[in-house]
């Protein structure tokens, strides 16, 4: 379990400021998405990462950019933004515009940036997990030292295909890291109501997979854990299972307007104290790494940046109706007409 965050950390002040910028950026981006949804600028199902930012930032920092693979489910905005995706194209996709990564055919749940090795963006709970192992399979097949990070939720950890995949990942020595983002709720069903054993990391152990539970709300421990585990997997060419304990502050999706159906306000308030953003900010100020004024300026700058991203995305046109037939196949059009 988590070590104390109150360590002397190896990161330079410049690195710490960069992590803070990343975290503020994701927070503001996601807040903007929620607002866009409420204003009818985004539709469908939309799931934000607010409260869980330290996890994606910490793990992203441990990966080799442009080399390692990442795949996740539908809470999928943060990872591509961290991996180098164009935020305007991410926002445009969420808004269903031609300028989006999938030209408006994916939406919030289906963001992909293959150029930066972000493989989505999937809507079937547990469905993408085998594909995550497939990315690692490809790396091993080609004798490359890439690792694949496959995020999944606590809800997905009950899926049959997850257990099938754990077995094959171990059997075939695949360099894949299953990161279970345990935010304590499978949609609106609390962990204790959906998992027979709530220690989800134990699910790797019967398959001979090294498995552990870590704190996903503390950036510093996450940075350490992620680096240690990614390096181990790259070196040992074996899978790994990490249960990352975190908490989503927002509802399951943007349409989840009544969180008190499944959790109390008191519980939320208690968990807000774990807010990775507030804690990192306090650390930076307390340790005199950045002044309060400096951080306020950073926050303002990023808010402006997100606003500009939104405006640029909003300027992208909706897809032309004839585009509905594009990309069904790589080399032919499907039959047209109703």
């Amino acid at each position: 379990m988590a070590k104390s965050a109150n360590l002397e950390h190896p990161q330079t002040p410049a690195q710490l400021e960069e992590f803070y910028r990343q975290m503020v950026f994701i927070r503001r981006f996601e807040e903007k998405c929620n607002l866009a949804y409420r204003q009818g600028k985004a539709g469908g199902y939309l799931h934000v990462y607010i409260g869980m930012e330290a996890t994606a930032i910490g793990w992203n920092a441990a990966l080799k950019p442009g080399w390692d693979y990442v795949i996740t489910a539908y809470r999928d905005h943060a990872q591509p933004l961290l991996m180098g995706a164009d935020p305007v194209k991410v926002m445009a996709e969420i808004m269903g515009r031609q300028g989006g990564y999938s030209h408006g055919k994916g939406g919030s749940m289906h963001i992909y940036d293959i150029e930066h090795n972000f493989y989505g963006g999937w809507g079937i709970v547990g469905g993408h997990v085998a594909m995550g192992a497939g990315l690692a399979f490809a790396a091993k097949y080609r004798e490359e030292d890439r690792v694949a990070v496959c995020y999944l939720g606590d809800g997905a950890s009950n899926a049959g295909v997850f257990f099938e995949t754990l077995n094959m990942a171990s059997l075939w020595d695949l360099p894949v890291i299953f990161v279970i983002e345990n935010n304590e709720f499978a949609m609106g069903t609390r962990l204790e109501y959906h998992a027979s054993d709530t220690h989800l990391y134990k699910r790797g152990e019967p398959f001979g997979i090294k498995s552990e539970r870590v704190d996903g709300m503390d950036l510093f421990t996450t940075l350490e854990d992620a680096k240690r585990i990614v390096d181990w997997v790259r070196t040992n060419q074996r899978p790994y299972l990490v249960e990352v304990m975190n908490y989503r502050f927002a509802g399951h999706g943007a349409a989840d307007n009544d969180r008190q159906l499944y959790r109390t306000k008191e519980e939320e308030d208690e968990n807000m104290k774990r807010d990775p953003l507030a804690r990192l900010r306090k650390y930076l100020v307390d340790k005199k790494i950045c002044s309060d004024e400096k951080l306020e300026a950073v926050e303002e700058e990023i808010s402006d940046q997100v606003e500009k991203i939104y405006e640029a995305a909003d300027a992208s046109p909706f897809p032309d109706p004839h585009e509905v037939y594009d990309h069904v196949y790589s080399d032919m059009a499907p039959e047209a007409g109703h």
Partner: peptide, 25 residues
């Protein structure tokens, strides 16, 4: 390496094949 006996788990090994195919295999 290239002729792979899988466990009897059609969703799992098909999914692995899809992931591998997405990278060009």
């Amino acid at each position: 390496k290239r002729v792979i006996d899988t466990p009897i788990v059609e969703p799992g090994f098909t999914g692995i094949a899809i992931g591998a195919a997405m990278t060009g295999l």
